[in-house]
Computed example of a mutant assay.
Amino acid sequence: MKYVSTKTWPWPVLRHDSDDYGRCEFQVEITPRMVEGSTGVTFEADFALSDRAILDEVAKRKACYSLLISCSSTHYRDHRNSYDPRIVWPLGNGVLADRVEVTPFVVTTKEVVDFVSDNWHEDYEGMTFSLAAGAVLAMEAPYGYWIQTGDESPARTVFKTEEDDKQSPNEWTCDLNGDYVILRFNPEDYHRFKRARSRAVADGTAEYIMNGVYLPALVCVLSEVDRDADGYSHLRWFSALSDALARAGCSPIGSAGDLRRGVDAQKILNAPFGRMPFLADREDTS
């Protein structure tokens, strides 16, 4: 089922952007745990439900907690049900890739006759509903995650470069509002950057490109996302960056200051300064 915030059912459904219910909540905390070196991931979902009528149906095993996982890149779509308010769902390497949506529900497993809740909106006063198996009782908006493919280098692949004729010469800017962080260059600078990057790959001086562009860009991104983690958490690059910080032993997003992030960016990029060939050494051997 696709989540549509304006969708209505013939019966009340507990969800955060609807007034079908009052004085109760349905919240789900979802934690993805990646398997190192692969696209394997285990999703851990902890359900918190406060409506007594729905809880009673779960206790009678006429309703259950449910997690729907879908991935358009691999055409995977499946759900897992549980009478326990915790679902742990391991998925192997190759099952998921790129964007994944995880949607929590509470659904009926059997016919429920004359269902009623004290928390319904007053518009439903005096009403009851008989629900068939599979009816939605509660749902959360889908959580979006990005699963990195095994051959991705998470630090640099969060970036893409574009030319922009509105960009001032000799400057670049970061656009953080897409699935990649876009570095925008003036057209002349863009082509100069591409030529320099090609030469750097060929002659082994790529670390200079990292220090001149990617390193300050990464510091900029880290500083910005620390200030507004919730505003960016749904984007592809956010999960890649979060994973890179964890692998480098750095503070998680939202918990470090700007000065510390300069060092963290160097760790994520695998100490590019320390690996740079010295120009003097090159001149001596030329």
Rank of each mutant, 00 (worst) to 15 (best):
G249S: 10
S251L: 09
C250Y: 13
A240T: 05
G249D: 08
A240L: 14
V221E: 04
V225Y: 02
S255T: 12
C250R: 11
S242V: 03
A240I: 07
L222D: 09
S242Y: 07
A246R: 14
A244G: 04
A229S: 13
H234I: 06
S233R: 15
R227W: 00
L245H: 09
S242D: 15
A246W: 14
G231M: 02
R247P: 00
A240C: 10
H234L: 10
R247Y: 04
S242F: 04
S242T: 09
V221T: 12
D228T: 02
G254I: 01
D243C: 07
S239Q: 15
A248K: 11
A244Y: 07
F238C: 01
V219H: 14
R227N: 07
D230N: 15
L241D: 06
A246Y: 14
C250M: 09
D226A: 05
D230H: 13
A240Y: 05
A229H: 05
L241F: 06
A229L: 00
S233P: 01
S223H: 04
D226T: 02
A229C: 04
S223N: 15
S239I: 12
G249I: 13
A248T: 07
A246Q: 14
A256Y: 06
G231D: 02
R227C: 03
A240P: 00
V219P: 00
S255E: 06
S223M: 03
V225L: 12
C220H: 12
R227Q: 10
G249R: 11
G254F: 04
L245K: 15
D226V: 01
V225M: 12
D226P: 07
S239A: 14
H234Q: 13
C220A: 10
A256I: 02
